Computed example of a mutant assay.
Amino acid sequence: MFRKNCYSCNRPSFSSSKEGQWLCPVCGEDLTKQKVHHPDKMTQIMRTQNTQRYPNNTLIKYH
């Protein structure tokens, strides 16, 4: 399964194929030319982006 992120509505879009026309299911934006992300790799990226360390090294995780 593959994922693209819509820059118009900021929602993820998933497909079993990275080929062909790809429209956002939420707002209809054409995502065909956007980079395809593999969900397994996105999980690690999202974990990194959804965390923040404060000065005392306390880890805060956003859901």
Rank of each mutant, 00 (worst) to 15 (best):
M1E: 10
F2P: 04
R3I: 13
K4V: 03
N5L: 12
N5G: 10
S8T: 10
N10T: 10
N10I: 03
R11W: 02
R11V: 04
P12C: 07
S13E: 12
S13I: 02
F14N: 03
F14A: 04
S15C: 05
S16H: 07
S16M: 12
S17T: 15
K18S: 14
G20R: 02
Q21H: 08
W22V: 08
L23G: 05
L23V: 00
C24W: 02
C27E: 02
G28F: 04
G28V: 06
G28E: 09
D30Y: 01
D30K: 03
D30M: 04
L31W: 04
L31R: 02
T32F: 05
T32V: 07
T32H: 05
K33S: 14
Q34H: 06
Q34D: 09
K35E: 11
K35A: 08
V36H: 04
H37G: 02
H38D: 11
M42A: 12
T43K: 15
I45V: 15
R47T: 11
R47W: 06
T48N: 14
Q49K: 12
Q49I: 05
Q49N: 08
N50H: 12
T51H: 08
T51Y: 08
Q52H: 14
Q52M: 15
Q52N: 13
R53H: 09
R53F: 15
R53P: 00
P55N: 08
P55G: 06
T58A: 14
T58L: 13
T58N: 10
L59R: 04
I60T: 05
I60A: 08
I60K: 04
I60N: 01
K61N: 05
K61P: 00
Y62A: 07
Y62R: 09
Y62K: 11
Y62E: 10
H63A: 14
